[in-house]
Design a protein around this nucleic acid. Structure first.
Ligand SMILES: [Zn+2]
Ligand SMILES: [Zn+2]
Ligand SMILES: [Zn+2]
Ligand SMILES: [Zn+2]
Lengths: 141, 141
DNA sequence: GAGTGAACGATAATCATTCTCATTGTACTC
DNA sequence: GAGTACAATGAGAATGATTATCGTTCACTC
């Protein structure tokens, strides 16, 4: 990972700067109201500019490592990406795969949050409830 | 899904009964201290008995639909299965992929848990914190 | 013990993700 | 501003977990 030329820190170390493509991926995610898969991102972005699928995946990996985006695993197994600021969770039906968003994040109201015995820099959390939606309870015998 | 002959309920509906292979998969998961992937299960079980990979996947799907097992997505993207009774969560490093288990489940101490506006039968939840473990914070510039 | 349908096992197909490698872009030096 | 070094990129191949297919076997009923 090589830094661009733009900013420079006092300590001499070059401040990390996103590449054009990394910034473009981040911008698209910020514009979207819902999480996107890598494939969806690729499909959307290639219409505006020339970009390779591998680059999309590499950008997502870099952005995640820097704590700028989060990911969760969708029903079909693919990863869904969204800005790390969003804190949205779901009830997901094991039968039909539908996800019903929660109106707020329950983790926020935790009293003594996170007694990690080990030092760890937390970027985000995932939380999801699984079970059966009402219509599907009648189909599973 | 056809029921076996063994048990019969008072209401006339045949009580759901697991097949031999479904029960075998469930037994192995109960014996293991850690979550297992479908591939790992297959590798372990084929040593004891003749079983196909597809059957393992089908058994896992059935067991999950009946609220007997849970699954979470591991670092490498594969699904890890464990009995639904277990309530174990992790801190997972985005850089090295290591998972550090939490000593207890924070969701249990929620005050007003789960105001679902929609009727939904919850079987289990997943909760995971992502970030960087201490050694890895020095490697990401 | 024949009929019915679910369960099974072997295998092929799918598909998101990762890897490979040749090419291009960028920063830094002289 | 040409030259060097190396990160970033893109096209396509490779990977690997999961799913679909299909003929066979098993379990139950009559
Ligand atoms: Zn449903
Ligand atoms: Zn949250
Ligand atoms: Zn780490
Ligand atoms: Zn829990």
């Amino acid at each position: 990972m090589k830094s661009n030329s733009l900013p420079q820190q006092d300590n001499g170390h070059p401040m990390y700067h996103l590449t054009r493509n990394q910034q473009a991926v981040l911008d698209v995610l910020h514009q979207q109201p819902h999480p996107l898969s890598a494939q969806e991102l690729y499909g959307m972005m290639r219409q505006q500019q020339a970009i390779g699928l591998a680059t999309v995946y590499r950008a997502l990996e870099t952005l995640k490592l820097h704590g700028l985006i989060r990911s969760r695993t969708g029903t079909n197994g693919e990863s869904l990406y969204s800005p790390v600021l969003t804190d949205q969770h779901y009830l997901t039906c094991l039968q039909c795969g539908q996800s019903f968003p929660l109106d707020h994040c329950p983790v926020q109201e935790l009293k003594a949050p996170l007694q990690h015995p080990i030092p760890f820099k937390i970027y985000y959390h995932t939380l999801e409830f699984f079970g059966l939606c009402e219509p599907c309870t009648h189909q599973v015998e």
